[in-house]
Design a protein around this nucleic acid. Structure first.
Ligand SMILES: [Mn+2]
Ligand SMILES: [Mn+2]
Ligand SMILES: [Zn+2]
Ligand SMILES: [Zn+2]
Lengths: 121, 121
DNA sequence: TGACTTATTGCAAGTCATTTGCAATAATTC
DNA sequence: GAATTATTGCAAATGACTTGCAATAAGTCA
């Protein structure tokens, strides 16, 4: 556990952030960390299961904290790119899959694209 | 409408394929087309709404035909990468979102990861 | 504590999917 | 069929991400 790793961990949220965003945040909060270190650390966090990696339509990865208690899905604005967290009942869907196939579901990504509240005005 | 575009359109399926796969297919079927042309054509197809672009965990894009009548979702095998199409009733989820927020959903991607039938043996 | 071992950092350089510039070629228009 | 316009394919650029490696910091054990 190093200073850099602690800072990266502290800057993670349930809101998925890009490496660029994390890097900017750390720069303006007194502890600049090289992007390479951020990449390596986040990959490590994903492997040990404390962070999740997501990719939306733009093509860079976003990272967020993972917790069983906080399972949720994402509403992504097509206009401004804002991401909203939303808890959804995904049990029915998984039951449906189990009924129809014998694919063994281990994880899932439910993402909805559209226009956020702000951009509707 | 050129020969190349016709060939690319004909090689599309409801099964999402990578540019590499489409390129290989065209090479072994008498009509090699430059990958740049494939990229440009597929982007065009996506813009006019006849093709869909998907990204799974590996990081290259996959393209498939789109049709209202054939709306479906994907089961992606974590082991072999196989993709299975599955129709799912997503109405309830979207209703749930409309009830909880005023985000205006325009499209969605429901992807399930796990182990396919073959890889379970 | 301090010498020793091991893991992490940061820069530079490499990789790989995708995009862009541009001249040659093909399709469309008149 | 000549003139206009769009599409092709090569080479080169881009941009997110990874890797090599020497310097530095953490952890270990007397
Ligand atoms: Mn989230
Ligand atoms: Mn499909
Ligand atoms: Zn928005
Ligand atoms: Zn499989």
């Amino acid at each position: 556990m190093t200073i850099q790793r602690r800072c990266i961990l502290d800057s993670l949220t349930f809101f998925p952030q890009s490496v660029f965003e994390i890097s900017s945040f750390l720069k303006t909060h007194g502890t600049p960390v090289d992007v390479v270190t951020i990449y390596r650390t986040l990959n490590c966090f994903v492997e040990i299961g404390i962070a999740g990696k997501t990719k939306f339509k733009d093509d860079f990865s976003r990272y967020e904290l993972i917790s069983e208690a906080n399972h949720h899905h994402h509403l992504v604005c097509d206009k401004c790119g804002a991401v909203e967290d939303i808890p959804l009942d995904d049990k029915l869907l998984i039951d449906e899959i189990n009924k129809k196939t014998n694919f063994k579901v281990k994880s899932h990504a439910l993402e909805f694209f559209g226009i956020c509240t702000k951009c509707q005005q």
